[in-house]
């Protein structure tokens, strides 16, 4: 089986059989869009929630298609359509969005939470249903998505495991 490693900011697509892997996901979100009918799946390893937010130039200078949640969802959608997915039957699964460093000062940025919210918002705007998600917590995850089973397996170290 082919295992594609999806690194921070990247998008990868597989079809029929294979595995999409994001290693050590912290506050990032590993988002998978898949078409069960055509057996096409793509993963985006999303780093920050917004491309704008006072960093207008940041977007233009980025060569990473999945760096920002608000633009990554659309880019991932386009990428799986290009590889044969049909517009009608696309579903989503995602994992990540952790906040590793509990703050006792109470004012620290929770990038993980913002990432999760930004992805959910973009998905609902595009009308893509989420069939499984595990977000938050204070631990990193390795996320694998398999075709043809369409299962997402999540390992958190410490022998904690989940499957969605």
């Amino acid at each position: 089986m082919i295992e594609e490693i999806v690194r921070t900011g990247e998008i990868k697509v597989i079809s029929r059989e294979g595995c999409l892997t994001a290693l050590g996901v912290g506050s990032c979100v590993a988002l998978v869009l898949y078409d069960p009918g055509r057996l096409v799946a793509g993963m985006a390893h999303i780093f920050l929630p917004f491309s704008g937010n006072g960093h207008k130039s940041a977007m233009a200078s980025s060569f990473l298609p999945a760096k920002f949640a608000d633009t990554a969802v659309e880019a991932l959608h386009a990428a799986i359509l290009k590889c044969g997915a049909s517009t009608g039957g696309i579903l989503a699964k995602m994992a990540g969005g952790a906040n590793l460093f509990d703050s006792f000062q109470g004012q620290a940025l929770d990038v993980g939470k913002l990432n999760g919210e930004a992805v959910k918002k973009a998905l609902s705007e595009m009308g893509i249903p989420v069939t499984g998600a595990t977000l938050g917590g204070n631990f990193g995850r390795t996320v694998r998505f398999y075709l043809p089973s369409m299962r997402m397996k999540i390992v958190c170290g410490f022998s904690r495991e989940a499957s969605i």
């Binding site: 900011g9 996901v25 912290g26 506050s27 060569f63 460093f101 940025l109 990432n115 631990f139």
Partner: peptide, 21 residues
């Protein structure tokens, strides 16, 4: 934090809002 090394680095860069590539 006690977790995966990759997750640590990635989260620290995100907390810095690292907008460079």
């Amino acid at each position: 934090a006690e977790t995966m090394a990759g997750a640590v680095i990635e989260s620290v860069l995100a907390l810095m809002e690292h907008t460079n590539d």
